[in-house]
Each structure stands twice: as C-alpha cells, then as structure tokens.
C-alpha cells in the first residue's frame, strides 16, 4: 500500500471525508469567532478590524485557497460516495428499519450537506463574493458590517440563514464524531468525551451563527 492508493479504498475515501471535514470544522471555529465580534455592539469596529486582517493577510488568503479545495473535495467525494453506496443495496427493502436502528441525520448526510451547500452559495454571493471582487478590481474592501446590517433587514434572508444554521447543526451532529471515529479514535476511552464535545459543538456554533442575522433583524445590534 502506498500513499497514492491509500486514499482510494473505501477507508481511504472515508479518511478524505474525515480530514476535510475536520478542516472545515476548524474554519467554522475561526469564522464564528471573528463574526462574533459584532456582539460587542461597537458599531462594527472590532469586527471590521478582524475582517480586514482575514481579508488581506497573505497567509490567511493562501489558506483560503486550501479551504476551497477541501470544501470542493468534501462535497464531490461525499456525493459520489452517496450515489455509490445507494447502488450497493440493489433491490430496496419493502419494509425498512428507519429510526429503530439508526438516526435519521446519520442516514441523511448527503441531503443535509446539500442544504448547507445551497445556503453557502447564497451566503458567499452576498458577502465574500462581492468583497473579493471589489478587492481584486482595485476598489478596496467593502464595509461588511454595513452590508450585514442591510441584508439582515430582509425577512426571507434571515429565515434562509436560520434554516442554513439548522441544517449545519444536524450535519455536524453526525459529522463531528464521525470524523474522529474514522481516524480510529472511537475507543471506549475517548468515545464519550468526543461525542459530548460533538453534541455541544453542533448546538452552540450554529446558534451563535444564527444569532447574527437575528440580532440585526431585531435591532439588538446597530
């Protein structure tokens, strides 16, 4: 077994999903921390400072490229695995076990992931896209704080953001622990701890994200 085909067997593909997933989780933590600066309610001063650093620092911008590569790998590999695995059953069961033997969100990772992806496309087209476009065309950075404040006055956008966060939460509820199980850490010693952290993470992080549009909409942040 060499490096090249180590990642191409079924376990190899699982490792791809696990490692890219963990990287995306790391990204979520950073993104959440930066954006949570708005809760200082200082007219966006601290947030803008942090966003400026993230948007202009050379190292961060390089990691950003890697992030997109990993995201695409995670999405493509995930969908391919879903299609392949579905076909492995052949004839479907007339009666299936449903929730008696497993959790619905564990069985619905492709669906939840697709919902998160759709949300992400909308999200990127609202903030990241216009900002990078403005930067690369020499118009400088946009005022993301003001953009947030304006966007999050629109009811449907706020609702879509909340739904996106809910889908993310369910996706993480399976994905977080699953990533560690794939790395072989689902042992009696670590299982409980990792599952606990996973559940907490999957609830807390999406709630913090969802509170951002909600806070602007409700006028808690100005």
């Amino acid at each position: 077994m060499n490096w090249k085909n180590a990642f191409s067997t079924s376990i190899g593909k699982k490792l791809q999903m696990s490692l890219t997933g963990l990287f995306l989780i790391l990204f979520l933590i950073v993104h959440c921390y930066i954006n949570a600066q708005i809760f200082y309610n200082d007219g966006g001063v601290r947030f803008t400072e942090a966003a400026h650093f993230m948007g202009t620092n050379f190292v961060i911008r390089t990691i950003e490229l890697g992030l997109f590569a990993f995201l695409i790998l995670h999405v493509v590999q995930g969908l391919l695995l879903w299609a392949k695995n579905r076909a492995r059953r052949g004839t479907r069961y007339a009666v299936s076990a449903g929730n008696q033997t497993s959790r619905w969100y564990s069985r619905s990772m492709a669906l939840l992931g697709t919902l998160v992806l759709l949300f992400l496309i909308l999200h990127l087209s609202k903030f990241w896209g216009p900002n990078r476009l403005s930067q690369t065309t020499g118009h400088g950075e946009l005022d993301l704080f003001t953009m947030m404040r304006d966007e999050f006055q629109v009811t449907w956008i706020v609702i879509v953001y909340i739904l996106g966060c809910i889908a993310l939460g369910w996706h993480l509820l399976h994905g977080f622990y699953s990533a560690f199980q794939t790395l072989g850490l689902g042992t009696s010693k670590y299982k409980g701890l990792l599952k606990g952290i996973g559940v907490a993470f999957s609830i807390i992080v999406p709630i913090i994200f969802a509170l951002m549009p909600i806070s602007f909409y409700m006028g808690w942040i100005s």
């Binding site: 079924s10 376990i11 593909k13 699982k14 490792l15 695995l81 392949k84 695995n85 492995r88 059953r89 076990a97 008696q100 033997t101 497993s102 959790r103 564990s106 069985r107 990772m109 399976h174 622990y177 699953s178 199980q181 794939t182 790395l183 072989g184 850490l185 689902g186 042992t187 009696s188 299982k191």
Partner: peptide, 30 residues
C-alpha cells in the same frame, strides 16, 4: 458499500460486535 459511521450494524449484530472494532480497523489501516 463504504462505511459512513451510521451504526445500524452495531444495533443489529446478534453478537454485540462493537463499533470500537471499526475504529480499530481504521487505526490498523492507517
């Protein structure tokens, strides 16, 4: 098919084989 850590296998195994074995297989593989 490939494993996505759903866990229905463990729930249905008549011999109580634990998912910890899958974690071990992953470690052995890595």
């Amino acid at each position: 098919g490939s494993c996505t850590n759903i866990g229905a296998c463990e729930a249905e195994c008549p011999k109580g084989i634990s998912l910890e074995n899958i974690a071990r297989l992953n470690r052995e593989y890595i």
